[in-house]
């Protein structure tokens, strides 16, 4: 399956990329979640401060990810 991964703000600068397309192998299909996408995309362990959104809705690192999803990772928000 194929997912789009996006990074914002300080995390985008740390990772050095704002967006990437990730091909997740068949072995991972059954268990793909935001955590496995993060690990594959960043080669880093999950950061408890990082927020996750799947298809522009807040989610947990444990949330399942399916083909075509957009998975975003970003630091705590600071608007307003």
């Amino acid at each position: 399956m194929r997912v789009t991964v996006r990074f914002f703000a300080a995390l985008r600068e740390t990772i050095g990329s704002s967006e990437m397309t990730l091909d997740v192998g068949p072995d991972h299909d059954k268990s793909a979640n935001a955590r496995s996408i993060w690990e594959q995309a960043t080669r880093m362990p999950p950061d408890p401060h990082v927020r996750v959104a799947i298809n522009k809705t807040y989610a947990d690192f444990d949330a399942p990810v399916v083909d075509g999803d957009e998975v975003a990772f970003f630091p705590p928000v600071t608007g307003g």
């Binding site: 914002f8 300080a10 807040y58 630091p75 705590p76 928000v77 600071t78 307003g80």
Partner: peptide
């Protein structure tokens, strides 16, 4: 303040920095 996905980056006289929290 706690949920809308906005991020502030400040420009100071001696560089830039991301605002870490509200």
């Amino acid at each position: 303040k706690t949920h809308a996905p906005f991020w502030k980056k400040e420009r100071l006289s001696h560089g830039e920095r991301w605002v870490s929290g509200n």
